[in-house]
Amino acid sequence: MKNNQTRNRFQLPTSLLFLSPWLVGTCLLVVFPLLVTLGLAFWGDDGFSMAAFGRMAQSDLVRISLANSLIFVLLAVPVRVLGAFFLALLLRPKKLALARTAVFLPTIIPPPAWALIGLWLFNPLFGPINLVLQGSGLPGVNWLVDETATQLMFVILAGFQLGEGFIVLLIGRSLIPEHLFDAARLDGAGLWGRFRHITWPLMLPWLALLTGRDLLVSLQGTFTPSFVITYGGPYYSTTFLPLLIYELAFDFRDSALVAAVLLLVFSTLIGVSLLLWQGALARE
């Protein structure tokens, strides 16, 4: 043990050397920009100021995009996380390699390409989806015209791109020792019993972490379709937070307001992730 400790201390500098590109790079490109941006929220014309928070509270645009984003993540995140979880469990057998490939395929399509494909699929006049709906005697849906339908379209487009969570959960599932399942099988536990008592509790921390990340990833994913195909419309219904921040930052040049919005978003993200993480560990 003592020997081990000396060795660790001896090795610390070299391993820190190999850590440093990631550590320094992330500090420079992520932590430093984040801190500066958050700091700007308190920066007015003459020093410290909370004015940006007042503007944020009064801005209709901010309120609308917060509401849109909230509705979007409440629909998209459960679909993506639980969908990825279900598919990771379903497609674990080695022989199902082709099905795993198929599930991952929509995720690797570059976002603007996926947005253009979506724009065509959902076109209300000649898109395949409405033609199939009408062909089977159902009324067509006014995608891209009706506000709710357009938001739903964004959720569906995001639902297909769940590949990242799929991979992370495949890894997570593989970290559960097989002997736990073998023991449960010997005790006569069925598929549901093994899921209920082994897979679910042991995967909860993974699901919590993934949910936290997916709040971010799915919301960020709305930027490209809302920038390329709807530009926030119709009637601001697809003005989600990333597009709002882009407009505030690069069109309106209102960095204090951007910072105030981001402060709200980031603290919510960290808070929700911590709560989920705590909840998951408490269950375990």
């Binding site: 490109l29 992520v30 430093f32 984040l34 960020q220 951007v258 981001l262």
Partner: peptide, 11 residues
């Protein structure tokens, strides 16, 4: 967990 939009301005 840092939103990419939080780093745009400073980057």
């Amino acid at each position: 967990l840092v939103p990419p939009s939080a780093v745009w301005l400073v980057r």
